[in-house]
Computed example of a mutant assay.
Amino acid sequence: MALTGVSRLGKTVLWAGANDQRIAAVIASCSGEGGAALSRRNYGETIAHLASPKRYEYQFAANYGEWAANPDAAPVDAHQLIALMAPRPLLLQTGTEDKWSDPKGEFLAAKAATPVYKLLGESGIEAEHLPKAGRLIGGALGYYMHDGGHGMTTDDWGVYLEFLKRHL
């Protein structure tokens, strides 16, 4: 079984994959804060935004907001969630103009999770810098950024299928 989801559901499929070994692969699209983006960057969508009253606090544990003012104090970050998928295939997908989901923060989190993939015999993100749009990089832990904004595009589906064919 492979799962995909966009935005809030991108967060959901990451969490599901981390918790259920029966999930063979995950494609998380524009998952941002609370998903694949590093909270400690405090960029775009933030803990303060997600945990604020009248927003999305119902989606998270009540204590999540404790780190809203100081994300550096949080005991975990996105790279650890990503690492829980290892060694199973995980593709992080975003858009160049999706500042809300923090494409760079998702890339940096994938780089930080790569050592766990390597430890378990798979490959991850070797690039030193954020790739140009339209270029799928990595191995079992992959990263892809389309030219555009938040969400999936029709062209992304071809990349998803290519990624899944390589790894399943």
Rank of each mutant, 00 (worst) to 15 (best):
L38K: 12
L84T: 12
Q59C: 15
A24R: 05
S39N: 11
M85L: 14
S39Y: 12
A25V: 03
C30I: 11
S52G: 10
N70R: 15
P75D: 15
R55T: 10
A24F: 01
I23L: 12
G34F: 09
A28L: 06
G17E: 04
S52T: 06
G32V: 06
I27D: 07
E33C: 15
E45K: 00
A25M: 09
H49K: 10
Y56A: 13
A69V: 04
S52C: 13
E45Q: 06
A36W: 03
A48L: 03
L14H: 02
A78G: 10
I82T: 03
S29A: 12
Q59T: 10
C30D: 14
N19Y: 09
Y43E: 04
L50Q: 13
A83T: 01
S31R: 03
A37T: 12
H79R: 12
A18D: 07
A36N: 03
L14C: 05
H79V: 05
Q21M: 14
L84Y: 11
S52D: 14
A61K: 10
R55A: 10
P71N: 03
G35E: 03
A37W: 15
Y43M: 00
S29C: 10
Y56C: 14
A78R: 13
E45L: 07
A83Q: 02
P89N: 01
Q59E: 14
Y43G: 00
Y58G: 11
A61G: 10
S52V: 03
R40W: 13
Q80W: 05
T46Y: 02
Q59I: 04
T12N: 05
M85F: 01
E66P: 00
S31H: 04
A37M: 11
W15Q: 13
P71Q: 04
T46I: 00
S31K: 05
R22P: 14
Y58E: 15
G65R: 13
D20K: 14
L81K: 07
I47L: 11
A61Q: 09
A25L: 09
A73V: 04
P89R: 00
A61M: 09
A36S: 08
I27W: 09
R55N: 11
R55D: 07
R41D: 08
L38E: 07
A51H: 04
Q21V: 14
Q21P: 08
A16C: 10
V26D: 02
Q59F: 14
S52E: 13
A62G: 09
R88V: 01
G44P: 04
V26L: 02
P53A: 15
P87H: 01
A68N: 07
S31L: 10
Q59M: 15
P87V: 00
